[in-house]
Design a protein around this nucleic acid. Structure first.
Lengths: 251, 251
DNA sequence: CGGCGGATTGAGTGCTCTCAACAGGAGTGG
DNA sequence: CCACTCCTGTTGAGAGCACTCAATCCGCCG
């Protein structure tokens, strides 16, 4: 809903300016202390969004790989996904994008992206103008750090995904996806009593975990049978968190 | 050998300063034109490396996930790998690091990394001091852009890896790895007559492609049998590039 | 009611893994 | 120079995880 939400810190208040330890002769976002906790959204909130939000229906493509991008897209409401498509119709979901998320920090710096962005639910989205963003970046050095930090966090997230896809079994991958989503939604206050709304079709889960929908179904069935989770009309409840984490194998 | 090598552009000459289109009231690396071709090394070359190179023997760990990192490590000679390790001894190689490569742009901004760095061959490596790097970054805004650009390129590379691991079969993955390495080495002038030195054990290839060494062996055997490649004492020759690309399925 | 998208289930297949054995090569110590 | 060991590559047999194809079921919506 509100772009004020900070998914990295467990707080909704705008952060204090980071005390600078800069020693260089002039502004440098790098010579000071190292980046720590990423917290991008509170700063982005000070940047005006372009007039006029766009909307997309579920399953609609919001952005196609390679298209010119003259703004930085943000998902305002709903779920979307970064998707890599290849011949044969095979698809890999690289990340889920929740309300308030930049589609990718790459869009801030690059004029086009290498992946597709697809609406999962109905989605409202908008753009930051690059000029507006640039002004804000110039005016507030801390934003640069926040942006970089977000970028690094994205990289680490993909590293984790690659490891999961390369070296984990199906049940581990699905469990980790559920736990990952729970964590992201929890920060936004969208988890109540270990249950949360999850608008994903099993096809989405399959594309995110590198499996087939049928097999995802069997894995979920096993989880349900073992009392780890319950799923009912788009709501996922984690019944046995400990056991699910054990399946996910925290490593 | 030389850190002047630019693996992104097919040129060994230091780039011209990028003409700035900045319009902001003061320095901003972002309000100008968008990032285009990444070319980090020529600038890094102007930054002094710390005194005293370190060396590591093959198979030795250079950096352990989580360790404090007070400099930015660079591989000067040899091959290394970014490795994610998890319980059960499973390993995933996230990328290969060649001579002249930063281990990861993350190291410029973060005090510790989430992955291991492991020597594949004997390796000479060193560090950029963060203070030195920071000074250079402050003095030359273009370096910031180059650094960002390299960071984005790394992200895209991992996106590709994740897609391969999630949605491609064994033979496609191995073929793509070979073609990827060929491309990187070609830029450095290390490919002659479609053959190049490849110091990887089949275990490394397995860890990079999410397979087992035995199965990698079978895939390579099939490639050899089909006349796609030849391997002899650490040298890989791509005999039938077209066909290998077809297996890799450019998508 | 009919149709559609999605979930579920079954049967069979096969890609990839596991386990095991063996061969060759490089280094090492005697 | 030889014996030995370690590492790596190679190959075989068998198992199993995940896929393919297909049918059915269910909830929702027009």
């Amino acid at each position: 809903m509100s772009l004020l939400i900070d998914y990295a810190n467990n707080t909704l208040t705008p952060p204090e300016p980071i005390p600078s330890l800069m020693q260089g002769p002039r502004f440098s976002p790098f010579s000071g202390e190292l980046l720590s906790a990423p917290s991008l959204e509170p700063w982005l909130n000070q940047v005006p969004l372009r007039e006029g939000q766009k909307t997309a229906r579920a399953r609609q493509m919001i952005y196609r790989a390679g298209e010119i991008l003259d703004g930085v897209p943000v998902i305002c409401d709903g779920w979307a996904a970064r998707v890599c498509r290849l011949s044969n119709g095979r698809r890999q979901i690289l990340s889920f994008i929740l309300a308030g998320d930049l589609v990718s920090t790459n869009a801030v710096f690059a004029g086009h992206l290498r992946f597709f962005v697809e609406a999962i639910t109905a989605v409202r989205y908008s753009y930051y103008g690059r000029a507006d963003l640039g002004q804000r970046l110039a005016a507030q050095p801390a934003v640069v750090r926040a942006l970089l930090s977000a970028c690094l966090a994205e990289k680490e997230e993909i590293d984790r995904l690659a490891t999961d896809l390369g070296r984990r079994r199906a049940d581990e991958r699905v469990a980790r996806l559920f736990l990952n989503l729970r964590e992201r939604l929890d920060v936004r206050g969208l988890v109540r009593d270990q249950s949360f709304a999850i608008p994903l079709r099993q096809q989405h889960i399959a594309d995110a975990t590198g499996l087939t929908p049928e097999y995802v179904n069997r894995v979920i069935g096993a989880f349900r049978h073992d009392g780890l989770i319950e799923i009912d009309r788009g709501t996922l409840k984690i019944v046995n968190l400990i056991q699910l984490q054990r399946v996910a194998d925290a490593a």
